[in-house]
């Protein structure tokens, strides 16, 4: 009796204490687009997001220089970005960037980082930065954007990890 009560209480405690994990799991399948907390932008259309990540947009409306931060090739976040944002595979994307650089249409060359921590640190530290990360990895140091009117975790959010 006593052991059962203790065990149940511990389970309850685990559930309560890990509630952020439970929250995160509900967003865990979403790819968040994050910007610096000082950035006044709250929402982007999918097309605007595509243009930014393809390096076609150089500045935000407040004239801060855009710095695009993506993840390394092969990482789930980058795979999701290729599928949802770029609409091409990594090989085609590499070719696209070279052609765009050659044609002088590439305004911003994306910066590639290996970890969510790196993305968070860079986005938190650079006013014009915009990056990708799992919704579950978003913290208060960065600001997630609404894409086509929806935040990660909301029904109908278009940027899905898998």
């Amino acid at each position: 009796m006593r052991r059962t009560t203790v065990w149940r209480s511990m389970m309850l405690g685990l559930l309560l204490s890990t509630s952020p994990v439970v929250w995160a799991q509900s967003n865990g399948n979403h790819l968040a687009i994050v910007v610096n907390t000082a950035n006044t932008v709250e929402e982007l259309s999918m097309e605007k997001l595509r243009r930014i990540f393809r390096g076609e947009e150089a500045e935000w409306d407040n004239q801060a220089k855009i710095e695009v931060v993506t993840r390394a090739s092969g990482q789930p976040e980058q795979e999701a970005a290729l599928r949802n944002i770029y609409g091409m595979n990594q090989s085609a994307l590499n070719a696209y960037f070279l052609k765009a650089a050659f044609a002088r249409t590439l305004k911003v060359k994306p910066k590639v980082l290996n970890t969510a921590l790196g993305v968070r640190q860079l986005v938190a530290g650079v006013p014009g930065a915009i990056g990708i990360m799992r919704a579950s990895e978003v913290d208060k140091s960065v600001k997630p954007l609404r894409i086509n009117g929806r935040l990660p975790g909301e029904a109908g959010y278009e940027l899905v990890l898998q």
Binding site: L12, G13, L16, S17, T18
Partner: peptide, 12 residues
């Protein structure tokens, strides 16, 4: 998790 578990263990 551990802190929560400990506290809850004590409380329970």
């Amino acid at each position: 998790i551990i802190t929560g578990t400990g506290i809850v263990t004590l409380l329970t």
